[in-house]
Design a binder for these strands. Structure first.
Length: 455
RNA sequence: GAGGGCGUAGCUCAGUAGGUUAGAGCGACAGUUUGUGGCACUGUAGGCCGUGGGUUCGAGACCCAUCGUUCUCCCCA
C-alpha cells in the first residue's frame, strides 16, 4: 500500500477551515432567503447528454464523465470496443459513458425547471449551494471540486430581477466585509458591436478576443482580430469601443454615439442604464462598474451579464451571472426566460483568508472543559455538564483521569477558554472550581451558581 | 491541451564542487514531588531523501523516465 493521497484538485477541510467555510455559506444562504429564494438540491451526477454542448467546446472537455458499470461484460465486448473507438475519435458514447458529474448549477436547474414547469409557481426563485466538478488543471484559485452558490429567477423578463440580484451581491459581500467591484455589461451591446463589425455570427470570435484585452493588451488582441478576418476599419471601431473610459454615465454616453444606431445596441444600453439608475437611488451604484470588455464564456447568456471581482486581490472572478432568455428550450420547454448569479465560495474563502477577514468568533468551539479527576468526580461533572449543554453552552469532559498538566494542555490546544474542576475536595463540599484560562482567575462556587455563571 | 518550478522527519526547510553512521527548528510523546497549564530544562520516537532505471569505486545531490505537487497560458468560480 502506497502513501494515501487525494485526487488532484481536491482537498480535505480541517475543523477551522470548515467553520470558516460555513460562515460564508451561512452568510450567503441567509441573504438568499431574505431575498425570497427557496432552496433546491440536485444530484451530483446528471445524464451526460443533459450537460454536453451547454458550456461550449472547452466546457465539454472539462466535464467529468463517469465510466459505465459492466464494461467488463464479455457478452457486450463488441459494443464496448466500438464505443472505445468513438472515444478515441474524440466523441462520447453511451456505450462507455452515459453519466457525468455536475459541471455547474445552472444547467441542472434548467433541467429541473423543464421537468417540473407544470408544478412550479412563476416567477420561480431558487437558490442552490452544492459542489460542482471540473476536469480543469488545478492552479491558484482553481480546483477540480468546488462549491457554487447560485440564485436564479425564471419566468420573468423584468429588469427588476437584475436590479435585485445586484442588490443581493452587494448585501452578501457587505456582510462578509469583502470589498468588491461588480462588473456589468450586456450581451446585446456585444452583439451590436459584432453586427456593425461584420455580422452577428462573429459574436463569439469577437467576445473571446476582447475578453483578453486586460491580459494581453490591445496589440495582441488586434492580431487575433486580424486572423479572425476583421477588416482594419472594423478593428478601428473595436478599438474605439474598447477605449471608452470614464464614469459609468460617461461610458454609456460614448457608447450610445457608437452603437445607438443599432437595435440591439439600443436595448442593451437601455437595460444597462436602467440598472445603473435604479442603484443610483439605492446607493449601491458605487459598487457597479460598466465594463464593455466583459464577455463571460458561457454561451447561453443573452442579456445583462455580471462578474464580481474582489478589490485589491490577485484572484479571478469570485462570482458571475447573467440573463439567459431561453435556457429550458434546450430541454424542450421554450419561453422561460431567466436570470441568475453565482458565488464562488472557494475563491471567496481564499481571498478572505488572504485578507484576514474572518471574524474570530467563527473559530469558537468548546467553551468549557470539565477536568476528569476520578470516577465519582467525573460522574458529578457529567451531570453538571449535561445541564450546561442544555443551556446551549458547548462543553466536554476529558475522557480519562489524568494529570492536571495533561488536561490543561488539552484545553489550551483546543483553545477552550474555561475549565471546571471537580476533585475530591469539591465533591465533598458540593462545589466546583471554575477557572478562566486567559485571565488565570478562578472561583470555587456551588453547583447552582455554576448554572448561572457568566463564562 | 501547451510550458516552467519543486518533491529530504508529522510541518517548515538545511544538506556546500557527488565521499563514511542524514541534520536543524517547530510539533508529538515521556519526565523534571500525580490539585493548577502557558515558560524553561532533560530525554525519546520519527526518514529505503516521491518511485523506477542509468552514470560512477561511490548518488539525497548528476542524467532519463514516471508519479505527485505548484505556477503560467488556454478557459473559468
Amino acid at each position: 500500500m502506497s502513501k494515501p493521497s487525494l485526487p488532484q484538485g481536491t482537498r480535505d477541510f480541517n475543523a477551522i477551515t470548515v467553520q470558516k467555510r460555513q460562515y460564508i455559506f451561512q452568510t450567503i444562504r441567509s441573504v438568499f432567503e431574505s431575498f425570497g429564494f427557496t432552496p433546491l438540491e440536485t444530484p451530483a451526477m446528471e445524464n451526460l447528454d443533459t450537460l454536453m454542448g451547454k458550456y461550449g467546446e472547452e466546457g465539454d472537455k472539462l466535464i467529468f464523465k463517469i465510466l459505465n458499470n459492466g464494461l467488463d461484460n464479455l457478452q457486450k465486448k463488441e459494443q464496448t470496443l466500438e464505443g472505445f473507438d468513438k472515444i478515441l475519435a474524440g466523441k462520447s458514447t453511451p456505450n462507455i459513458t452515459e453519466r457525468a458529474l455536475r459541471y455547474d448549477l445552472t444547467i441542472p436547474f434548467a433541467r429541473y425547471v423543464a421537468m417540473n414547469h407544470g408544478a412550479l409557481t412563476f416567477p420561480f426563485k431558487r437558490y442552490q449551494i452544492q459542489p460542482v466538478w471540473r476536469a480543469d488543471r488545478p492552479q491558484k484559485g482553481r480546483y477540480r471540486e468546488f462549491y457554487q452558490c447560485d440564485a436564479d429567477i425564471v419566468g420573468s423578463e423584468s429588469l427588476l430581477n437584475e436590479v435585485d440580484l445586484v442588490a443581493l451581491y452587494v448585501t452578501a459581500f457587505e456582510k462578509l466585509k469583502l470589498p468588491v467591484e461588480i462588473k456589468i455589461n450586456n450581451r446585446q451591446i456585444l452583439l451590436a458591436l459584432a453586427e456593425i463589425c461584420g455580422g452577428s455570427e462573429k459574436l463569439i470570435d469577437l467576445t473571446i478576443a476582447i475578453d483578453k484585452l486586460d491580459k494581453i493588451g490591445w496589440e495582441k488582441v488586434q492580431v487575433e482580430l486580424s486572423t479572425k478576418g476583421f477588416t482594419p476599419a472594423q478593428q478601428d471601431t473595436i478599438q474605439t469601443y474598447l477605449n471608452i473610459k470614464g464614469s459609468n454615465e460617461e461610458k454609456l454616453k460614448k457608447l450610445t454615439t457608437l452603437l445607438g444606431g443599432n437595435a440591439a445596441g439600443q436595448t442593451g444600453i437601455a437595460a444597462l442604464n436602467y440598472v445603473l439608475n435604479y442603484h443610483n437611488n439605492t446607493g449601491m451604484a458605487k459598487h457597479l462598474v460598466a465594463d464593455f470588455t466583459l464577455a463571460r464564456g458561457l454561451n447561453y447568456y443573452t442579456g445583462l451579464i455580471f462578474e464580481v471581482k474582489a478589490k485589491d486581490a490577485q484572484m479571478g472572478s469570485i462570482g458571475g451571472g447573467g440573463r439567459y432568455n431561453d435556457l429550458t428550450s434546450l430541454f424542450g420547454v421554450p419561453n422561460i426566460p431567466g436570470v441568475g448569479i453565482s458565488f464562488g465560495v472557494d475563491r471567496i474563502y481564499d481571498v478572505m483568508e488572504e485578507k484576514n477577514l474572518f471574524p474570530a468568533s467563527v473559530e469558537q468551539g468548546t467553551q468549557i472543559l470539565f477536568f476528569n479527576l476520578g470516577e465519582n468526580e467525573a460522574m458529578q461533572s457529567y451531570e453538571l455538564m449535561m445541564a450546561l449543554r442544555n443551556k446551549k453552552i458547548a462543553c466536554e469532559i476529558y475522557p480519562e483521569k489524568s494529570k492536571f498538566d495533561k488536561q490543561f494542555k488539552y484545553a489550551e490546544k483546543k483553545n477552550i477558554p474555561t475549565i471546571v474542576i471537580i476533585g475530591s475536595d469539591e465533591l465533598a463540599a458540593k462545589k466546583c472550581t471554575v477557572k478562566n484560562l486567559n485571565s488565570g482567575q478562578q472561583d470555587t462556587i456551588t453547583f447552582e451558581a455554576l448554572m448561572g455563571y457568566q463564562f
